[in-house]
């Protein structure tokens, strides 16, 4: 791995804290939509080569299982992809929480996953960008995979960059087992830009 891309302990700590602040905003919005208390995780940060991205995602999500994922591209000071990964039961539970009866059709379920994904990605990434003085814009969310095994979520051959920064947060609802994971993938030049932004942020403390 190219050493220039590695985060120093200070940069990692700063990114973790900035992410923590941003996810507090994302969690509060999720709580408002679902009208339940949302438990926040300590964010996990990982830089990975694209060839091992599937393994890294599997480690973050935990047990191998089938998942559905929503993706959204972002560009601006940083560019990359944000993904929200829902486990199998998560989709069903989300529908329940939103007051749908058993008869939710596939389209309504997709719409729900896209909406929740959009809220989480927007709040989380805008929160990070705002703290670091960066500007981001987002593409519309799309479903990237439905009911696929988590290790097969991303085909490394389809990635156009060699390294990725995974920033992972997950939200757990107290009333039930619903968990979803938010991750971002960024190419090399954005990792370098992010490192500079973190350094500048720490210098201004």
């Amino acid at each position: 791995m190219n050493d220039q891309l590695l985060l120093t302990p200070d940069q990692r700590d700063a990114l973790q804290e900035v992410t923590n602040i941003a996810m507090g905003q994302a969690g509060a919005q999720l709580a408002q939509i679902l009208e339940v208390f949302v438990q926040l995780s300590v964010p996990r940060i990982n830089i990975t080569e694209s060839s091992s991205i599937a393994t890294s995602i599997l480690q973050l999500v935990g047990t191998p299982q089938s998942v559905t994922a929503v993706r959204q591209a972002f560009s601006g000071t940083l560019r990359g992809e944000a993904m929200v990964v829902y486990d199998q039961n998560g989709c069903r539970d989300l529908a329940d929480l939103m007051g749908y009866e058993d008869d939710i059709d596939r389209d309504s379920e997709r719409e729900l996953l896209l909406d929740v994904g959009n809220v989480l990605v927007g709040a989380c990434l805008n929160g990070i960008a705002e703290l670091l003085g960066a500007k981001l814009s987002f593409s519309a969310p799309t479903i990237m995979a439905e009911d696929v095994e988590v290790g097969r979520l991303i085909n490394p051959q389809q990635l156009t960059w060699n390294y990725a920064l995974l920033v992972e947060v997950h939200f757990t609802l107290e009333v039930r087992d619903f968990t979803c994971h938010l991750m971002t993938l960024m190419p090399e030049e954005s990792i370098v830009a992010l490192k500079s932004a973190l350094d500048a942020f720490m210098e201004n403390l």
Binding site: A28, A31, F37
Partner: peptide, 9 residues
């Protein structure tokens, strides 16, 4: 001192 801004927190 927290990032968790839910009223319930």
């Amino acid at each position: 001192v927290s990032a968790d801004i839910q009223p319930l927190a």
